[in-house]
Design a protein around this nucleic acid. Structure first.
Length: 447
DNA sequence: ACATGTTTAGGAAATG
DNA sequence: CATTTCCTAAACATGT
């Protein structure tokens, strides 16, 4: 099996910046777009599900349907995936549902035969079927998946993504930013034909990757959602590992600020009290294994962990986030835009504290709903997550759908963290995330 | 039993 | 070149 080679003439998927004409590593059947500055433009929120996101260049020109605009279907009606190839992702109300179409035609005819692909002649006239994508909100991961989708119609080459990238995509494109192991397997196989072979081999690697890397955090199932295995999500600080657009190799290995993988995972299902106890007593904050050694897994024992106080951690995180804020230009354009509109609050004037002031001054004659509305206006929130009936990752409706959150504040926290663009604001609780998100994060969609 | 998760080990490949 | 990151194998533990 030949290994995938990066084409030096083509760049990795990016969400903005100077785009090479072929981001696909293969010739686009539609020809090349002109080089230039491209920006992903989000559609108006009112018709989120109807309008297509488009790629425009710096002259305001909309691009022809090459690989990039393919991500957003380019105005084509959405194709219904065959039920057999539909990944178990999300629900009808969820975003980021990625479907790939079967069958896939491989360059290697032997593989075509082997995979029992009865109709392998779908590719005709250089056309690539449109990839159906519902309401993409994570452009970087979606771009990568879409790019791979197109490429994989013609090739069974090993995708230029590390296992960490693949897992990250699976998580980021899932409805609740959490996946079971089986769902990760399924996503990868649905998206990349290469991984429909030798499953035992790469699946072992996936499990190893999940266990070994700090960026993946296990979220135990709540009692009301029994099933096999835990959920896996991204560490709250690990949402931008591939913002530089390189999915083959991270610039820097992610290392948890908050403690070892085991400690974080152990903390997640616990209730607030045990969390607070940990905070009061100082959490073990050892930096991970493999800071010095090579890939062979020599780990420092837990007993050698060094302690850091909660304040020290906070300062570390603030520095960390300030640093990332300085690098804001690397973020997707639509996130930058929203932040410019409503700059983040300083931590000292968190939404919670202002809510508190308002609540205390409002008296008991005001109804809850009206109080919430006043709070929203006071806080300049774009919508009230408590009463909003449309779709938002932060709307209470959405959260109710995910029953595991109800009795698992840490899981909720992880979910918020994964949804929320980075800001200077340092949330300290899921409530902080909640309000902050409603002000600054994803535009809600009206029903 | 089988799926899921953890850990050790060695080596390949990218990076600077 | 040394170092870091990634890949693969495999033994072993745990969970359903």
């Amino acid at each position: 099996m030949h290994k995938w080679m990066l084409n030096p003439m083509s760049s990795s998927p990016k969400t903005s910046g100077n785009y090479q004409t072929n981001c696909c590593y293969q010739q686009s059947p539609y020809g090349n777009n002109p080089t230039g500055q491209y920006t992903l433009v989000p559609p108006p929120s009112h018709h989120h599900h109807q309008q297509q996101q488009q790629l425009v260049n710096n002259n305001g020109q909309t691009l022809s349907p090459t690989s990039l605009s393919m991500v957003y279907n380019n105005g084509q009606p959405q194709q219904q995936p065959s039920s057999s190839s539909s990944p178990p992702y999300g629900t009808h109300t969820s975003l980021n549902v990625l479907h790939t179409l079967s069958p896939t035609r491989y360059q290697n005819q032997q593989i075509n035969d082997k995979t029992n692909n009865s109709s392998t002649t779908v590719i005709t006239n250089g056309q690539v079927p449109t990839m159906p994508v519902n309401n993409v909100t994570n452009s970087a991961a979606a771009l990568a998946a879409a790019t791979a989708y197109r490429r994989n119609f013609n090739a069974c080459a090993k995708p230029p993504y590390s296992y960490i990238s693949l897992i990250t995509m699976a998580i980021q494109l899932s409805a609740n930013r959490m996946c079971t192991l089986a769902e990760i397997y399924q996503f990868i196989m649905d998206s990349f034909p290469y991984y429909r072979q030798n499953q035992q081999r790469w699946q072992n690697s996936i499990r190893h990757s999940l266990s070994f890397n700090d960026c993946f955090v296990k979220v135990p199932r709540s009692p009301d959602r029994p099933g096999k295995g835990s959920y896996w999500t991204l560490h709250q600080d690990a949402t931008n590992m591939f913002e530089n657009g390189c999915y083959l190799r991270r610039q820097k290995r992610f290392k948890s600020f908050l403690g070892t993988k085991r400690e974080i995972s152990c903390r997640i299902p616990h209730d607030r009290d045990s969390n607070n106890n940990n905070r009061r007593n100082g959490i073990n904050n050892t930096l991970d294994k493999s800071t010095t050694s090579t890939g062979s897994g020599q780990r420092s024992p837990l007993s050698s962990a060094s302690d850091k106080s909660c304040d020290e951690q906070l300062i570390l995180m603030q520095h960390h986030q300030q640093h990332q804020q300085q690098q804001q230009h690397q973020r997707p354009m639509y996130m930058q835009h929203q932040q410019q509109q409503q700059p983040a609050l300083a931590a000292s004037e968190s939404p919670d504290s202002r809510n508190l002031q308002l609540s205390s001054s409002s008296g008991s004659t005001v109804g809850v709903k009206q109080l919430k509305q006043e709070q929203c206006e006071f806080n300049q929130m774009s919508f009230d997550p408590h009463t909003f009936t449309g779709y938002s990752p932060f709307a209470i409706n959405t959260l109710i759908m995910h029953q595991g959150f109800g009795d698992n504040p840490a899981a909720l926290n992880a979910y918020y963290a994964s949804q929320l663009p980075q800001t200077a604001f340092v949330p300290s609780s899921s409530t902080d995330y909640y309000h902050h998100s409603a002000m600054y994060a994803t535009q809600p969609t009206a029903l």
